[in-house]
């Protein structure tokens, strides 16, 4: 196991940021911690990277204890915090050289590992980091987190605020890094990114809701799920809320995801109910659950 977390809890005054969290990440896995802002993701990152002590529980990273062996962990892991934390007034190349030097290595020694990523920003190597675009900052931060060839890479919300093109490129980079036997522990509030991980933990309010593969998470959804649409979206939400066979009804893009509270549910009954309530262009059809459906079902 690359990362082992056992019964970790952490409170800030009255607020319980992490409540008895346990998880394990095998070596070489791409593991996703998926949850909204305030779920406790960053607190767990800070504990695992030895920047914060837990109130209870134990954890180890590549066999090192997060409390006793904190110095060894710091030499073994790469950490890219959520907030851009490179030196804004150093250039791209100066930042990279600085981080290499701190870890007692050189850019040249580990260039192979970062080449794919760094070539994309190398044309701007003399530009100050503060003047880079969001996508370029993200690539530089990843290069700096990798330059000492870490065994485990911690990425706290690397794609927040980044456009879809850069997000896609970023996940492709992670997949290639994984081939180099680096364990990657990544967090995101975006459920669609969860599908790209080997295993994911759904986290909210400091508690882990479930750990499984993305497919397993979807398959665990306990109801049939239907997409429903009519011309009047707002009225549709309200009417579904009042419908006697509704377990849940949540907007999902242009459709409402509707789950019935009985296995005897028939789509024609719902269509009939909506017609009686003066809806037009009614669509009702069965669909498969997404990770977000499961997340909501579990956190409800």
């Amino acid at each position: 196991m690359s990362i082992i977390v056992k019964n970790i809890s952490k409170s800030y005054k009255q607020v319980k940021a992490l409540d008895n969290i346990s998880l394990e990440v095998p070596s070489g896995e791409l593991f996703g911690l998926i949850g909204p802002d305030g779920a406790g993701k960053t607190t767990l990152f800070r504990i695992l990277t030895t920047l914060l002590l837990p109130n209870e529980g134990t954890a180890s990273v590549t066999g090192y204890d997060i409390v006793k062996d904190y110095k060894s962990i710091r030499n073994t892991v790469g950490y890219m915090p959520g907030r851009f934390s490179l030196y804004q007034d150093l250039t791209v190349e100066e930042n990279l050289r600085f981080f290499a030097t701190i870890f007692g290595t050189t850019i040249e020694e580990n260039y192979d590992l970062i080449r794919d990523i760094y070539v994309q920003i190398e044309p701007f190597k003399n530009r100050r980091a503060g003047r880079l675009s969001g996508g370029m900052k993200q690539k530089l931060a990843l290069s700096c987190a990798l330059i000492h060839k870490p065994k485990v890479l911690f990425l706290d919300e690397p794609t927040t605020g980044v456009d879809p093109v850069s997000r896609k490129e970023f996940w492709e980079m992670l997949k290639r890094l994984q081939e180099q036997q680096i364990t990657i522990f990544v967090s995101t509030p975006y459920m669609d990114e969860a599908a790209l991980c080997d295993n994911i933990a759904l986290i909210t309010n400091g508690k882990i809701l479930r750990i499984d593969t993305p497919e397993g998470i979807k398959a665990s959804f306990p109801h049939k799920i239907y997409k429903v649409k009519s011309t009047k979206t707002f009225k549709l939400i309200q009417d579904l809320g009042a419908y006697e066979q509704t377990h849940s009804a949540y907007p999902f893009g242009e459709y409402i995801h509707f789950t019935p509270n009985t296995t005897a549910f028939r789509t024609q009954d719902l269509t009939h109910f909506l017609k009686e309530n003066h809806h037009t262009n009614i669509e009702v059809f069965e669909t498969g659950p997404t990770i977000e459906d499961t997340f909501m079902e579990l956190s409800d």
Binding site: P36, P189, M191, Y250, M296, S299
Partner: peptide
Amino acid sequence: GGVDPITRR
């Protein structure tokens, strides 16, 4: 952005 799925709905 970043808001939990239920509150988002």
